[in-house]
Simulated assay, not measured.
Amino acid sequence: MLPKKRGVFVEAQTRIGHFPIMMFAIVMGMGGLSLMYLKAGEILGFPAFLGQGLLVVSTAIFLFIGALYSLKALRYFDAVRHEFAHPVRINFFSAISISMLMLAIGYKELSPAISALFWYSGTLLHLFLTLHTIAFWINHNQQLDHSSPAWFIPIVGNVLVPLGGVGFVPTGALFYFLSIGLFFWVVLFSIVLNRIIFHNQLATKFMPTLFILIAPPAVGFLSYLKLTHSLDTFALMLYNLGLFFTLLIAFMYKNFVKIKFFISWWAFIFPLAAMAISTMVLYSLTKEQGVLYLAYILIATTTIIVGIVIYQTLLHVKRGEICVQE
């Protein structure tokens, strides 16, 4: 029995060494789902326990994945350092800070103290990762094939900061983060669109990151409203751009239905959830029935996709196809 137990132990240690930073995309997905149902409870009258329960589950997943990646950092520091210097994987480190910011938003009404803990630590970490990533791009020549919508995560992710920061810091500081996110959204979108149209297509593994195109205008719309309390022309432009990218992704559904499962599938969820939340907020301001119907469609679509992604994730965990050498 001893050799067998030792073999299992060695295999577990090996899998920890291959534990990818991209696993934090799971927290982003579940966090987005939590916020969607919390907002549905607030605006549409959904049972409050749905959003609150999902928020607790998201927090547990964040702590679990964080513990495993911390263990990897302790035992396989060189592997983590390699990921942090990798032109593609470096972008997913910001999934940690974005996960913290999403949890901060979720706990804002339930527990201001927990929200403040997540928001301050998440904001400081995200600011560091934004500066580090841009410095990394400047100091190292980047290949166009390395660009993808995942580039939006560390930089454009700044648009998420104001949603949880109201009441913690002055509004001017929150506009600072919103300005960074919206500016680099335009810059990076131009680069990514140029790559997709005129150069090599995205690798199959990163096709799900196309959904991230929805997130910047959808979250930007929410943050802009949070700071200005004004449904003006610019706010509507942001919402409509988010809706356009949602329709574009739906139009391209054939690109996604047959691709092999990767952890990057979790990139499907947060942008759709953000668009559903934006639509619910728009409905709360306009009371237009068409907007309400669209909100229900987006909630249902996001929930179905979450179910599919969770099933595929558990199936591949059972098969031992997660945390393997790429």
Rank of each mutant, 00 (worst) to 15 (best):
M22Y: 06
H18V: 03
M28Y: 10
A40R: 05
K5S: 07
Q52I: 12
Y37F: 15
K5G: 06
E42W: 00
E42M: 12
I21K: 01
G45M: 00
G29L: 11
S58A: 15
S34I: 09
G53Y: 00
L50C: 07
F19G: 03
S58M: 03
V27G: 02
P20F: 04
I61L: 15
G41I: 08
A48L: 10
L44W: 02
L50W: 09
T59F: 14
Q13F: 07
S34F: 04
L33K: 02
F24A: 07
K39M: 11
L55Y: 01
L35I: 13
V27A: 05
G7H: 10
V8M: 14
F64Y: 13
A40H: 09
L63V: 14
P20G: 06
K4G: 05
R15N: 07
P20N: 05
A12V: 12
S34H: 08
G7T: 08
L54H: 01
G17Q: 05
S34L: 08
K5N: 09
I21P: 02
L38V: 09
M30H: 09
F24G: 08
L33M: 15
L33E: 14
A48I: 14
G17C: 07
V57Y: 06
V56Y: 14
K39V: 09
F49M: 12
R15Y: 05
G51D: 01
L33I: 14
G45K: 01
G29R: 00
R6F: 13
F24Y: 14
G45P: 03
A48K: 13
P20I: 03
G7V: 05
I21H: 03
G31I: 12
I16W: 06
G51I: 00
M23K: 07
P3T: 14
M22T: 12
G7F: 07
A60G: 13
